[in-house]
Design a protein around this nucleic acid. Sequence first.
RNA 1: CGGGGAGUAGCGUAGUUGGCUAACGCGCCUGCUUUGGGAGCAGGAGAUCGCAGGUUCAAGUCCUGUCUCCCCGACCA
Length: 569
Amino acid sequence: MFFSKMLIPTLREAPSDADNVSAKLMIRAGMIRKLGSGLYEILPLGLRLLRKVEKIIREEMNKAGGQEISLPLIFPKDLWVETGRWDVYGKELFRLKDRKMAEFCLAPTAEEAITDLVRKNINSYKNLPLMLYQFGTKFRDEIRPRFGVMRSREFLMKDAYSFHTDEADLEKYYKVMVDAYTNICKRCGFNFRIVEAASGAIGGSFSHEFMILADTGEEEIVWCNCGYGANSEKAQCLEYENSKENPADMEEVFTPDIGSVEDVAKFLKESPDKIIKTLIYTADSKPIAVLVRGGCEINTVKLQTLLGANEVLLADEKTVISVTNSPVGFAGPVNLKNIQIIADLSVLSIINAVVGANKKDFHLKNVNFKRDFNADIIADIRNVKEGDICPRCKKEKLKFSRGIEIGHTFKLGDKYSKSMNAVYLDTDGKEKFIIMGCYGIGVTRILAAIIEQSHDENGIIWTDTVTPFEVVIVPINYEDTKTKESVDKIYKELKSFDIDVLIDDRAERAGIKFKDADLIGIPYRITVGEKNLALGKVELKFRKDAKDKVKFLSLQETVDEIKSVFKQK
RNA sequence: CGGGGAGUAGCGUAGUUGGCUAACGCGCCUGCUUUGGGAGCAGGAGAUCGCAGGUUCAAGUCCUGUCUCCCCGACCA
């Protein structure tokens, strides 16, 4: 392939609205262009990259026994009403109407469609298990598209769905898929972790996210050397140890205009750990009181799951006043009537706690659980924080990292088969619900994630496995007969070995070609110039090395070295 | 949805107390000279200043509306 024949519009400067490293580099390298917020055009180099990633994923899916299919991008409303997700999915779902005013949505994921396909065509245990997958554009009306193709409104995703006779079979197959995803991550060269996650709008009992470690990642994950890993929104929190103190008599103290945890702690010269924060929430419009240790944060996802509520929000001022008879900042659990009280595990161990007195400008000291107040529910409803102990090994402190979620696997169980009545006939002649798993991986996002993990001040550094071209040949002057002969010879030899080669035949100066090669990030560069050619040599450079580190080799040596790198291919 | 910022040539920007033909760098085209890490000189093309309306002798500049983009937050998860 000739550079001059391809649409590769490289830029010296990134457009001012590109907001992170990978977006800037992908635009500058001529791989993508932005059409609108969260909408990107994929140019030839970008599409080559997507195809490379697709190939890796496809191989792993096929190895896992999957069959590739292709589902529509437009789904009728009916199916989504059946599962209830027409409402649940909310504003993120792109909705549209046809000429008959019938309603549809653009695919954000395809559980409904695939379950419909399977329920209509699978009747017997003899046809299970089954795994179907597809590559398809997904549409999500993100509240805030960001970071180029990392969080866009339209993106390429591989989604896979597995169907089983029972939980045990799903369990077994889930492991196969986790292995497949692990292989994909490895083949893409990722530094990654598998973490437990909240399943969100997809649902199901259990899910894992595949997180690429990168400081610029949107997600926060916690992990431990013992093997535990979780998205911080999902991570389990343990009870704190009891402080060794004798309970003292409860006492009311005057705290004028002092409402926040920090201010109360400072004023009373107590540690924030001794304060119990009382927050009034509304769970589906019903007020509830939630207790957590000062310095900890309530995790609304955990709270929502615990209560089985659709919506949990911090209550407004009016509600707080009506519930506590005091302004915001002085709520407390003692003598709090007519409201459900939910205590986080972190408050149980506090002896002689400080709480609001439900009275303007007053707090209570030496408050003790059981003796002075009680809770209707005690549960883990807070966020993990720095210093927390690993919930699995219970020894080491959890470590915090930032990550990019590129894959998510779910055990769905019968969530969809039940609501859509997808059943099979078992050996005993009885109808049973099909048990499902689903597995998504963001193809477009993988590209951005690789760049986030692998770039330098000159541009992108692709891996041998994911790159638009494996080798770029830079003739200093392609018009020179001897240069052209050598370049063509190397090209022909490498192509015969099934290696993707780009010849930068542009009539540009060498510097420009070098800069562009670095920016685009092709892992191997062969420079062919008259001076070295006179000595029978060309120059071989690895993109990941410093720019002055090169090898001078004969044509044949160069070809052999490249071949040896890609002999596995 | 709330708050803030911004739309001027393909990209990055200047110009905004109203005033001459809208400026600069990069990129692009032509020619000459150069030619191993973003060359030099000369010439040139390219912008109805996001869009619509208004004020004015005169609007990129002021006013109103509208669209788009970005940031922070909320929402979502």
